[in-house]
Amino acid sequence: MNAEFMQAFEQLGKEKGISTEVLFDAIEAALISAYKRNFASAQNVRVSLDRSTGDIHVFARKTVVEVVKDPRMEISLEEAKRTDVRYELDDVVELEVTPKNFGRIAAQTAKQVVVQRIREAERGIIFEEFSNRESDIVTGIVQRIEQKNVLIDLGKAEAILAPSEQMTGELYKPGDRIKTYITEVRKTTKGPQILVSRTHPGLLKRLFELEVPEIHDGVVEIKSVAREPGLRSKIAVYSRDENVDPVGACVGHKGMRVQTIVNELRGEKIDIVKWNSDPAKYIASALSPAKVVLVDVNETEKISKVVVPDYQLSLAIGKEGQNARLAAKLTGWKIDIKSESQAGSLV
């Protein structure tokens, strides 16, 4: 291999983000295999590749012994001393055995190694990039659907949206542009496998972080998220600045901010409630849009009894218990809801 060939390797290594030394070490290792394969050699050999000229030398490595049993691996002390008088028993002697036509084989082998290493490096770079983006949102284009899995083109890589991570009633067509949440990035022999979700609560949280500057700046904090994907969600927010209304910041002017998120989630209803350190007030907010008359909390067992006006009972519980279920998930409390007439003496 000539100097121009070596310069091309170095340039390619830099472009692909591969250390030149790593590349040359890999070529040397591959050349050892190529030498043994092409010259039927069982010798212990070392290949030296000159980093500047591209010259290649193959050396047979032999151990100095008193009596030679395997001439491919051993050399007598007497013969070793003919090479250099300083050799002693158990030293390793290197004798050059470079074949005349090894250059052509070397060039072909080097090319194969470089192609393989570049492919590995590119996969490694993609893996690093996306593994650093776990728990983040990515935008991609639906490519195709295979066995109910939706495959999404992310540009440099392909993501998998499994059936369990797809929203109820949502249809995915090739060419659709969608946002998904990266749940896991796995390293496989075929490159990184990126698993994404449309149902994860983290998707809703990150959408608000992207859409609401006050959340991004740390003024407003998302304390909790509860989702029934594609149907309804609740999000609890808190403001570190008493002059900033956390709910208003998330709703936006004329509801524009929350509407953008609702549209992205294909019409999923979103309740934004104000977080409170007082469990009773927090639970009352979490049951929004229902009005609450009384909240009685048991701190030890994290159970609460809630009383609502008779006409608000069905609203507080929600369709098939959805509102109460989401409120319980949001607050982390078990919630028992009764109407005023049912509660009787509690009021």
Rank of each mutant, 00 (worst) to 15 (best):
Asn2Gln: 05
Ala3Arg: 15
Glu4Asn: 11
Glu4Lys: 07
Glu4His: 05
Glu10Met: 12
Val22Gly: 07
Ala29Trp: 06
Ala30Ile: 03
Arg37Val: 07
Phe39Asn: 06
Phe39Cys: 00
Ser41Leu: 08
Gln43Ser: 09
Gln43Asp: 08
Val45Tyr: 01
Asp50Val: 08
Ser52Phe: 08
Gly54Val: 08
Asp55Trp: 01
His57Phe: 00
Arg61Met: 14
Thr63Ile: 13
Glu66Trp: 06
Val67Met: 09
Ser76Asp: 05
Ser76Met: 03
Leu77Ile: 10
Glu79Ala: 13
Glu79Arg: 10
Ala80Val: 02
Thr83Trp: 09
Asp84Glu: 13
Val85Phe: 11
Arg86Trp: 03
Asp91Gln: 09
Glu94Cys: 01
Thr98Tyr: 02
Arg104Gln: 12
Ala106Gln: 05
Thr109Ala: 03
Val114Thr: 13
Val115Ile: 15
Val115Gly: 00
Arg117Ile: 00
Ile118Leu: 15
Glu122Asn: 05
Gly124Ala: 14
Ser131His: 12
Val138Thr: 09
Val138Phe: 04
Thr139Leu: 09
Thr139Phe: 01
Val142Trp: 01
Val142Gly: 02
Glu146Thr: 10
Asn149Thr: 15
Asn149Asp: 15
Ile152Leu: 05
Glu158Gln: 14
Glu165Asn: 08
Met167Asp: 00
Met167Glu: 06
Pro174Thr: 10
Gly175Leu: 08
Gly175Gln: 11
Asp176Gly: 12
Ile178Ala: 06
Ile178Trp: 02
Lys179Tyr: 01
Thr180Met: 06
Glu184Val: 04
Val185Gln: 05
Thr188Gln: 14
Thr188His: 12
Leu203Gly: 04
Leu203Met: 05
Phe208Met: 01
Glu209Tyr: 01
Glu209Thr: 07
Ile215Gly: 05
Gly218Leu: 06
Val220Trp: 00
Glu221Ser: 06
Val225Glu: 06
Arg227Gly: 06
Arg227Met: 07
Pro229Arg: 10
Pro229Met: 08
Arg232Thr: 08
Lys234Asn: 04
Tyr238Met: 09
Asp241Pro: 04
Glu242Leu: 07
Asn243Phe: 13
Val247Arg: 12
Cys250Ile: 09
Val251Asp: 07
Arg257Gly: 05
Arg266Tyr: 03
Arg266Ala: 10
Lys269Glu: 14
Ile270Cys: 02
Asp271Ser: 11
Lys274Phe: 05
Lys274Arg: 15
Trp275His: 15
Ser277Asn: 13
Ala280Lys: 11
Tyr282Asp: 04
Ala286His: 06
Ala286Pro: 02
Thr300Phe: 04
Lys305Trp: 12
Tyr311Asp: 15
Gln312Pro: 02
Asn323Phe: 00
Ala327Ile: 10
Leu330Met: 07
Trp333Cys: 04
Asp336Glu: 15
Ile337Gln: 04
Gly344Asp: 03
Leu346Gln: 12
Val347Leu: 15
Val347Ser: 12
